[in-house]
């Protein structure tokens, strides 16, 4: 997100090369996602509405609903704003994704603790049975 914001801010890079630049150095579904966005923008009849969802599906990028919505808000309307507006969109998307990432981390932590407790209980039960 920071890379893309930088490219827009300092080099005014258009949408397709911007996506390709964002995909460089990434691998797997993330690389396919950004390359997919660039390919969509280069089509003769580029339909921006619904593009993010289509490309996510093609790249087999599995995201929670709320994260997908945040990306849709950013990419489905990309390029319709002036520079300040576009950077604001980046900041909003980055803030939303960070918030979601924090939530997921907390959920993961909770699940890890639950698994730990279950594991200990199961282990103790087995020990008791053996003894």
């Amino acid at each position: 997100m920071e890379l893309m914001a930088g490219e827009v801010s300092f080099a005014a890079t258009p949408f397709a090369p911007l996506c390709r630049r964002a995909g460089e150095g990434r691998s797997g579904a993330v690389h396919k996602f950004f390359n997919g966005l660039a390919r969509e923008a280069e089509k003769p009849d580029f339909a921006q509405a619904g593009m993010t969802r289509r490309v996510c599906a093609e790249a087999a990028l599995s995201l929670p609903k709320s994260a997908l919505s945040a990306l849709e808000r950013l990419f489905d309307g990309f390029g319709c704003f002036d520079r300040e507006g576009q950077l604001r969109q980046f900041r909003l998307a980055a803030a939303e994704l960070e918030r979601l990432s924090g939530e997921l981390s907390r959920q993961m932590e909770g699940r890890c603790r639950t698994c730990e407790v279950l594991g200990l209980t199961a282990g103790t039960a087995v020990l008791v049975m053996v003894l």
Binding site: T13, P14, L18, A41, Q48, F78, G79, R83, Q86
Partner: peptide, 13 residues
């Protein structure tokens, strides 16, 4: 105009 701008108004403002 959208196509001519490369779908990036900020790049041609």
């Amino acid at each position: 105009v959208r196509r001519a701008s490369g779908y990036a108004v900020y790049a041609v403002q």
